[in-house]
């Protein structure tokens, strides 16, 4: 019973944090990670529940800072850093889990302004704005994307949707390079997800598509994102992905 209660509290905390992120992205107003997790212990907010919720949300927990290139408050950075270090991926972690953690670490390095994190990524990709993510230092070697080699378009889209926090401007890495090489396949996956009413997967795929060149025009991505947001509006995780996609498409605050 206690396990179940913990799960529910964590789910509530994740939902609350995600809703705060959606509001911040929509309003453009200030966002503080510390204090955005409902049910957390105290003003410091660096308790276990907070760290767990931030780990679940992943690199997107600081998405307003990332998309607006604004530095987080020291408290927020401490919370984010705490989550990164509290939950290192186990040796047998799945590729998505490993990559999700890597994305958090990369984001942390970038937000701290660590020189390693400012090293330019592969040249030639879009969205480079002087804040490019590079391969970080030796203690955070970029994982391999071999598990995506030869993935069907269905499987590729599913994996990419799970790793939607990697879809940020200038965020070059092995996974984004795979996505860039298969825009039509990701678009197919978006259509598949919408048809199956898997709004979360559709929203994640839509966010990747907002970043990719060569997406077929006939997809109707803009209206597709609006449709996904409308149909999946009960789930803040869906809205977070759609807001991220919209901001990356309009480019306004990026």
């Amino acid at each position: 019973m206690e396990q179940s209660g913990t799960s529910t509290r964590l789910a509530d905390a994740v939902q609350g944090l995600t809703s705060e992120l959606v509001s911040a992205l929509r309003s453009g107003g200030p966002f503080g990670l510390a204090g955005s997790v409902p049910g957390a212990g105290g003003p410091e907010a660096a308790d276990k529940l907070t760290l767990a919720a931030v780990r679940v949300v992943g690199a997107d927990a600081v998405l307003p800072n990332v998309l607006r290139h604004t530095p987080p408050e020291p408290d927020d950075l401490a919370v984010f850093s705490g989550a990164v270090h509290a939950y290192p991926p186990p040796a047998d972690a799945s590729p998505t889990s490993t990559w999700s953690h890597w994305a958090m670490n990369r984001t942390l390095l970038r937000l701290r302004g660590t020189p390693d994190a400012a090293r330019p990524g592969t040249p030639g990709h879009n969205g480079s704005s002087g804040h490019s993510f590079g391969h970080s230092s030796g203690h955070d070697t970029e994982p391999r994307a071999a598990w995506l080699d030869g993935a069907s378009w269905q499987s590729l889209t599913h994996q990419l949707a799970v790793l939607a926090p990697l879809a940020v401007p200038g965020g070059d890495c092995a996974v984004t390079r795979v996505a860039r090489g298969r825009p039509a396949d990701v678009a197919r996956g978006f259509v598949r997800a919408v048809r199956r009413r898997d709004w979360l997967q559709a929203a994640g795929a839509g966010r990747w598509l907002a970043l990719l060149d060569g997406v077929p025009d006939t997809l109707g991505l803009e209206n597709g994102l609006a449709f996904v947001a409308q149909m999946g509006s009960a789930d803040p995780r869906v809205l977070l992905q759609v807001e991220a996609a919209r901001l990356m498409r309009t480019g306004a605050p990026v």
């Binding site: 039509a184 259509v191 006939t218």
Partner: peptide
């Protein structure tokens, strides 16, 4: 072109 792009999704579905 349109069909070649989207038919795989409909077949799958």
């Amino acid at each position: 072109d349109y069909l070649a792009t989207w038919l795989p999704v409909w077949l799958d579905d």
